[in-house]
Every structure is written in structure tokens, then in C-alpha cells.
Design a protein around this nucleic acid. Structure first.
Lengths: 238, 238
DNA sequence: CGATAGTTTGAACAAACTCAAGACACGTGG
DNA sequence: CCACGTGTCTTGAGTTTGTTCAAACTATCG
């Protein structure tokens, strides 16, 4: 029998969690090994393909999801079909609105996504009994609010050129916060980028072409781009 | 000597708080009379005139403020002066970002405003020691996030006419959530409404004129408007 | 190699912006 | 009480930006 690997608390960590990339940064980091073990009996790891709907607007939430891998697109849709992307979630964000009976957004897998699903009731009990956990989620919520407000400036006050530059900058800095990335994959197609920026697909495409012509980005294959000089891109964000 | 009025806990409430309109709905509602008494030794009630700056973007926060009366405008400004209003706060909202060293927005009194100021250190201690309090602030933060995302749809995907209707509807439904208001004061002038909606002052003015011509609103004196039929306004929000 | 979904490009159009002038409300002083 | 000045709002004309509609292109996959 192989010895169970212990962490600093010197207590066993559930096997499934041991190899989990999200365990330290995600909300589970606020849990003791015992709590983690109890929780892990209810969780289940699932995979979704790009395009799968994860949550529907105005529908009850049955499970919360910890994003382990991939990008989740949060959006809202008007009656006549106009769509606005209102947020992107990356690992290790928590998916699903706490303390509400229904989701306030549609959530869709923008890329292939791995989630750690936590049943609604289990999550809510855990949060109620564990202030440190609520604190972690509070920090994520505050960050999301900051991001939403930053994005409101982009939506309300920037030109199409600045919007597209801002989007590329957002993705680039998310992939490598140190600011040294040069090449990466876009998590969204042109249409979704337009829905994020409040632009049409054609305008996004034209601005991408212009950025390429100006040598600010190199476009390998529509989804894959290179930014030789992040500062040059930053300047274009307005 | 007059008997001190007790609440359900049968414990004395600080004199200043007894008459406070924000006490039950605001974050202080999560405190026991003892905690409220301890807190009230550090708080101070202040008045600000319309136009006063309450917090500056990227500046340290020295005090949090509980909005007791009036409307606070939260905005962000680009280097070249373009401004975007990213939120409005009403009583009994908490002003000031928790768990950050600096404000992420500029806060300005949109109308005359009364605040209950809580020193930064006292507030943070209180939050740390009192999960119920953090929970209250969490609920406010989640509501603000929902509002920000709703507003992103307005900014990114609605026409000028729909934007102005949405703004009037927002204010009307905030003043009377039952949906029976017909007449109210706008907390912002045309310029600030434009900065909220991502429009110019001229476009806001033209759309207001059109709404008046269509009989959806009556405009008494620029700041004071009447909405005879809220449903008619609602339809124009897109 | 052809089908398909996603993307790019072009030309005409519409929405909102800019600039400029005029109207209105409100407070101040005659 | 009225004339005046200031700040805010409205209105108009012309321009710009981004959209719409239509067609061509390009990756990718069976």
C-alpha cells in the first residue's frame, strides 16, 4: 500500500484534489483537508466542448462550477437577439451566482472546459459554515466588479480601434500577467469578440486587419495571434 | 430622565443610530447593539454638496461611507478626459472598495449627500471579526455586479433612444420599486447622463425631446420629469 | 477535393458626433 | 420687480464612425 501524500497540514488530501491545478488559487484553498475531503464526496469533474451551454439566463442553478481549465463566456441576450458578452471566466474562477435562485447570465464554454461541479446545496452549506470561504468568493466578486466597470469604460467611451486593442490586451495580459507574452490563442471568434465589444463582426475584422497592417499584431490563423510589443498595443487602448 | 428606547435585542442603541434611516437596510443592520455602540464612537456624520469629490481614482481610501441620503456617482476617466459613469449609489449603500488599498473609481456627490463615515481601520477590523457583516457587504457587491452587467448590455447593444429610456426607467424604478412613481427628480444633469450612457449631451437632449414629443415623459424643468405610464417607458428600453 | 463555417473586403447607408448658435432657467444686483 | 449674466440645455447642419448588405475569400475537415 502506497503512503498517502500529505500537505503542510499533515492531513490527507482527497486523491482527486491532489492533482487539481485550481486547489490553491481557487475557493477550495480556504478549506481544511477535512472539509475538502467531505466536499470531494459531492463533487464531480466534467468536461464540456466549446459551445456547450453551462448555465441559462433566468434558470435555476443546480450546481456551482469551479473552472479548472478553459474559458467560460458570460453573456446576456435581449429579446430581439442582440447579445452582449458581460464577462469571461478562467481557472480558478467560481461559476454560478451565489445567494440567488436563478442565474443572471447565460454561461457558455468558449473553449473546451473542465469544471469541478459542486451541488448547489453542498456549496451553500459550505459557504454558510465557513466565513473564510465566503471571503474568497467575495474577493473574486470584487475583482469581477472591477473588471466589469473597466469594461464599461471600453464599451461606452472607446472607439472601435481602441476596443479591439483593449480586447487583445485583456487576453494577452490574462495569459501572462508579467507582460511578456508574445503569442497566444484567442478564446473567442470574431463574432463573440464583437458581442464583447459592442461591435459588429465586420468592424472587428476591419480593426484586426488594420492592427496587422500597422505591425502591432501578427495573425497566423484567425484564432492564433502574436504581439511582438505589448507596449505598442497598450498605447492603442486609449 | 427619559427611558432609552430598546429594540428587539433589548439593548440600548446609540442615540445617533436610533434615528438613522440606513440602520436596518444598511450594513449596520448586521451588528449587535453592543457592536453598534462600539462602532458609533468612531463614526461621524457628514454632509456634502452636489459636485463634491468623495473619493479619487487610484487614491488611498481613508474612510468608508454609508450613504444615508442622496445619490453618489461613480466614474472612471481616461487620460484624454473621456468619462464613463460606472455606477450610482443610493442609501443605504456602502461607499468605498473593501480589501483594496486604493479606490478604483472616482466618487462624486451627484446631489446633496449625507454620509456616515467609518474610518478605514475600524471598518476593516469590524469586517474581519464579523462574518455576518461581510455577508451583507457581499450581497451589496453581488447586486452591484448584476447592475454593472445589466448596464454593459445597455452600453454595448442599445440604441441612443433605448439608452435614454433605460436610464429614466432605472431612476424611476429605483425611486419606487413598486412601479407606481410618476414624477421624480433626475439625480444627474444631461452631461452626466451622457457620461452614464456613453452618449454626447446633445444626443441625450434630442432623445429626451423625442420622448417628450411622444408623450412618454413630461419634462417640467430639465431636472424634474413625470412618467405617466411606466409600462410605456419600459417598452422603449429594448 | 469539395463542403462548410468562419472571416475578410467593398460600397452604400444610417446613427450618433461635432461644431455652432440660440433658448431657457435661475440667481444677482440694480 | 425687472434687467442681466451665467450655466445648462436645446436645436440645426454637416461630418464621421460604424453598420448593413452582399460577395469573395480561407481554413479545416471529412
Amino acid at each position: 500500500m502506497q503512503p498517502v501524500r500529505n500537505d503542510i497540514h499533515n492531513s490527507p488530501i482527497p486523491v482527486l484534489c491532489q492533482s487539481c491545478e485550481a486547489r490553491h488559487q481557487g475557493f477550495c484553498g480556504a478549506l481544511t483537508p477535512e472539509q475538502l475531503l467531505a466536499l470531494s464526496r459531492h463533487t464531480r469533474r466534467v468536461h464540456h466542448d466549446a459551445g456547450d451551454e453551462l448555465l441559462a439566463d433566468a434558470e435555476p442553478i443546480t450546481s456551482y462550477g469551479n473552472v479548472l481549465h478553459g474559458v467560460v463566456k458570460l453573456s446576456k441576450i435581449l429579446e430581439d437577439g442582440r447579445q452582449q458578452v458581460v464577462g469571461l471566466q478562467f481557472a480558478p474562477d467560481l461559476l454560478g451566482r451565489l445567494f440567488a435562485n436563478e442565474s443572471r447570465v447565460t454561461a457558455e464554454a468558449a473553449s473546451d472546459v473542465d469544471l469541478c461541479l459542486v451541488p448547489k446545496a453542498a456549496m451553500e452549506t459550505l459557504v454558510r459554515e465557513n466565513p473564510a470561504l465566503e471571503h474568497r468568493v467575495m474577493l473574486q466578486t470584487l475583482r469581477e466588479l472591477d473588471e466589469a466597470r473597466d469594461w464599461m469604460v471600453t464599451l461606452g467611451r472607446k472607439t472601435a480601434a481602441e476596443k479591439v486593442a483593449s480586447f487583445l490586451y485583456l487576453i494577452a495580459s490574462h495569459i501572462d500577467p508579467t507582460g511578456e507574452v508574445t503569442t497566444f490563442d484567442l478564446p473567442l471568434g470574431r463574432g463573440d469578440i464583437g458581442d464583447f465589444l459592442g461591435l459588429t463582426i465586420e468592424t472587428v475584422s476591419r480593426q484586426m486587419t488594420k492592427l496587422k497592417a500597422d505591425g502591432v499584431v501578427e495573425i497566423e490563423n484567425h484564432r492564433h495571434v502574436s504581439v511582438p510589443d505589448l507596449a505598442r498595443l497598450r498605447v492603442r487602448c486609449g
